[in-house]
Amino acid sequence: MRFLSVSTYALVKREILRYVRRPSNTFLPPLITNVLYFSVFGVILGDRIDRIQGFDYIVFILPGLIVLGAISNAFENASFSIFHGRWNEYIHETLTSPMSYTEMVLAYIGASALRGLVVGVIIAFVGYAFEPVGVARPFYLVAFLVVISVLFASLGVVGGLWAEDFDYLTVMNQFIVRPLVFFGGVFYSLEILPPLYRTLSLLNPMVYMVNGVRYGFLAYSDIDHNVALAVLSALTLAVVLVDIALFKRGYGLTD
């Protein structure tokens, strides 16, 4: 029995084939980048950095790097695919089809989230190659990874509809997503921050994502993982609904 309708399956397949056939543009860059991260922070500097909350530094930063890779790729995939389709107008192939707007949105999000997850897994294997680490809470690890990948794929849809030039995509990824991730506790524990900065950090949604994935690997988190999962799930649902509404309204697509 097919889980997806024929038309949704066709669009998901098209989206997946687009990035699977171009690994040098999609999977190779995060692989190389993370080999460099683990080499520098794990091997070269790792021994000179104190353990954080009882974990080797390389192990502590692994979840954050997975989050960074997963959400960047999920976001980039959705925003690029939609914007490029708008730019060259071949998104009309989808828009003039009998697919429902919900099917279109779910197909774009699903394929993009999958890319984020695949990149996350690749980074996990890279990290494991440098320092074998187990998964303490598999359910939470999978749940957080799926939720944040879907969330950022959904945000990527908004970005792809909003963008009017390729520069917009770069701005969104480099100047908004990445800084939030870097200040989201990827490379440090919130415990080491002064109280004011710790409180301010709690306003950064990335903190909840990084700590959620970290909880999945290490059973350690600076914040309540269940609350984080609930809040992120609700946020994801809200953004997906916004995506569907934007497609229905034709925002960035019609006129």
Partner: peptide
């Protein structure tokens, strides 16, 4: 306004799939 990423045969297959 044709999908540039795929050979034209696949472009048509995708379009048929969307329908």
């Amino acid at each position: 306004n044709v999908d540039r990423f795929f050979p034209i045969r696949e472009v048509l297959q995708h379009k048929a799939g969307y329908h």
